[in-house]
């Protein structure tokens, strides 16, 4: 498209020069443009630069963190060694000649509960006290767990 031929008013308008930006704005523009010959580009305002940096960091860290969590979970689930009790570091494991486990029933009772769907279910609760005797080279070591162990077993209602 051909631009319009200039009329006197248009010529007069063109003779007007837009006011030069104040020094403060020119300084800001110089600070953001590659005036020092940096072909890599202008330095954006500090706030913008830090936001961009954070975005890049998050973009990198998010998948790396996810992978690290998965790897750690896999190591815990598949390759975990039982933690040594405090003070047992450096001790060699003991091989027992015989281990006897005796359990004493302390109490037993039944209870009825409801599943989330409303279906009734009966559970049998038992409390046990365990006695563990370990024999090593003619010596006996007795381990007794006096704290009752609760065992809860769901029992199906009989239907006819």
């Amino acid at each position: 498209m051909n631009d319009l031929a200039q009329d006197p008013l248009e010529q007069e308008l063109r003779r007007l020069r837009p006011a030069q930006p104040p020094t403060e704005l020119m300084d800001r523009l110089r600070a953001t443009c590659p005036l020092r010959g940096a072909a890599a580009g202008p330095e954006p305002p500090r706030g913008v630069a830090s936001r961009d940096w954070m975005k890049v960091l998050l973009r990198v860290l998010a998948p790396v963190s996810a992978v690290a969590v998965l790897v750690a979970a896999g190591m815990v689930l598949h390759g975990r060694k039982p933690a040594a009790p405090p003070g047992a570091e450096g001790l060699s494991p003991v091989i027992a000649d015989d281990v006897t486990v005796a359990s004493e029933l302390v109490s037993s009772f039944d209870a009825v509960a409801e599943l989330p769907g409303g279906e009734p279910v009966r559970v049998r609760c038992r409390q046990w006290v365990d006695h563990v005797v370990v024999r090593i080279g003619g010596k006996e070591v007795t381990i007794e767990q006096r704290k009752p162990r609760m065992e809860v077993v769901p029992v199906r209602f009989e239907t006819y």
Partner: peptide
């Protein structure tokens, strides 16, 4: 610079906004 500021002054509500517009626009365009 002056031409950008002239246009920005017509688009902005105040002088400070106009100057911000010029700076942001130059950075984005670059």
């Amino acid at each position: 610079g002056g031409r950008f500021l002239l246009f920005a002054r017509q688009q902005a509500r105040c002088e400070a906004d106009a100057r911000d517009l010029v700076q942001e626009a130059v950075v984005e365009a670059w």
